[in-house]
Write a protein that binds this DNA or RNA. Structure first.
Lengths: 123, 123
DNA sequence: CATGATACATACTTTGGGGTAAGTACTTGC
DNA sequence: GCAAGTACTTACCCCAAAGTATGTATCATG
């Protein structure tokens, strides 16, 4: 008798909204705290796992691979492992991933503009 | 004795990353499921509360005002209430809010391109 | 006088993203 | 022979965001 949910409005939305709203579509791929940052770092070129880790000192290893896997699943990057030891794994953006540069840049541009607006109001 | 966290890496990040990463800065303002959609609808022009609600059938009233308040707090929109009864409240984007059109459009453009890529691979 | 419209508010519950901690497999260097 | 580096994996926990449900104030209209 306490089962009112089943698939909930949340998931209903996910389905519906994904088809209607392109913004949500993007958010589902690059949303969250880490993904855009990972993409940002990879826009500079391919990197191996340890390099990404070094450029993001605050991320935990779990979060890092978790998101790398998801981004790979969403075809935003490809993983290449050379069968050597110690392992040598590189991550490279796909075309879809590189195309996100426009989005990332638009965001960055807005962010700097908005930060400016703020500091101008303070005095 | 179970308090290991205090402010946690999460919040440490929020602080640090906000200053370093413009993308995260944006995400903190327009991230989440609903905000970009609200903004999207308001880009077409000012709307009153009930109109926004109608254009987003799947959002709950709680979520709607909650995010409207946050967007107002972040200076992305302004709320104007006429002191009549029944209440008449309109929401309008600020300059900062309208400037997000670039970001939203870049996202939409990418989304459509990405959807195309997918449908081309399927057959 | 109670029902409906409008624009919320508030209490309570659930879910999943993010975090912590520890372990694995393989080899090179001391 | 064991510590250290590389690229993960696994188990478990916590909290904030999202969702559910219900209540509020005001007046107009039947």
């Amino acid at each position: 008798m306490t089962k009112i949910k089943e698939s909930s409005t949340y998931n209903a939305n996910r389905e519906i909204v994904m088809q209607e709203c392109p913004v949500t579509y993007v958010m589902n791929k690059i949303g969250g705290h880490w993904k855009p940052i990972i993409l940002y770092h990879l826009l500079a070129g391919s990197k191996r796992y340890s390099e990404i880790k070094k450029s993001m000192p605050h991320i935990t290893e779990k979060m890092l691979i978790q998101h790398l896997k998801q981004l790979e699943g969403d075809n935003l990057l490809v993983r290449e492992a050379r069968p050597v030891v110690p392992p040598y794994v590189t991550y490279t953006l796909t075309e879809a991933g590189r195309d996100l540069e426009t989005v990332i840049n638009a965001m960055a541009a807005w962010a700097y503009k908005d930060m400016d607006r703020k500091t101008q109001i303070i005095p």
